[in-house]
Amino acid sequence: MRKNKKPKLAVWKFTSCDGCQLSLLDCEDELLALSDKVEIANFLEASRAVLKGPYDLSLVEGSITTPQDAERIHQVRRVSKLLITIGACAASGGIQALRNFKEVKQFISIVYAKPEYIETLNKSTPISDHVPVDFELRGCPVNKYQLLEIIAAFLNRRKPVISARSVCMDCKLKGTVCVMVADRIPCLGPVTHAGCCALCPSIHRGCYGCFGPKETPNTASLSRTWEKLGADQDDLVRVFRSFNSGAEPFRRESEIHEIKKD
């Protein structure tokens, strides 16, 4: 890092809903402190002013779904010293990775009046399929405190304090009663990466898996628990196919139940 010069921060958007970038703007109280410490050099969601690279830290939102995306991500990597992806799209392909289970041409002809104008890849893929990634911040959307934590960790050259453990651990730290054991509500918490402060179980709903698979997820065992609670094969296909259907453990588990269904 250059001495006496603020590090340059860039935020890049690929195929996504912009929600994760909004999480950065949501850091209202901390934005001033942040802009004091970094130069926001490229963040189109916030400002038209763009400074030239290279950039010390790039935050990348979105997945790769078009030939242009696939090319541009290499340019971003080239001008970034550190590349951190933000959100489920960038980490696993996002909700748009549902196309990966079908032929995308089938959708295009149904959805668009002039399909010939649409140029898109057959699959939605995570950033790490294309370029080396230094850290993947999970979530749909990301948690703003975790976003600040990775930036603070980067600025202070330390490891981010972000754990890949289960959502259950956060439920227990908060004192939430397990909705699955006490209320038979199917919950993805035991296989899902923590980070949301166990939001859904604390308002009496099962976890939807927004943060994708945790470290060592045993999806097969959790599916057996869900079956005991009354879930059928269709339910299990769908539950593993939401924001993180492109994440390997969830994709594999959903495919197992698709085969069982037929």
């Binding site: 289960s166 651990m169 227990k172 397990c178 296989v191 470290e215 065992s221």
Partner: peptide, 12 residues
């Protein structure tokens, strides 16, 4: 084969 490694047992 059954363990979810979720950590619930240790927390409770």
């Amino acid at each position: 084969n059954r363990c979810l490694t979720c950590g619930n047992c240790t927390m409770v």
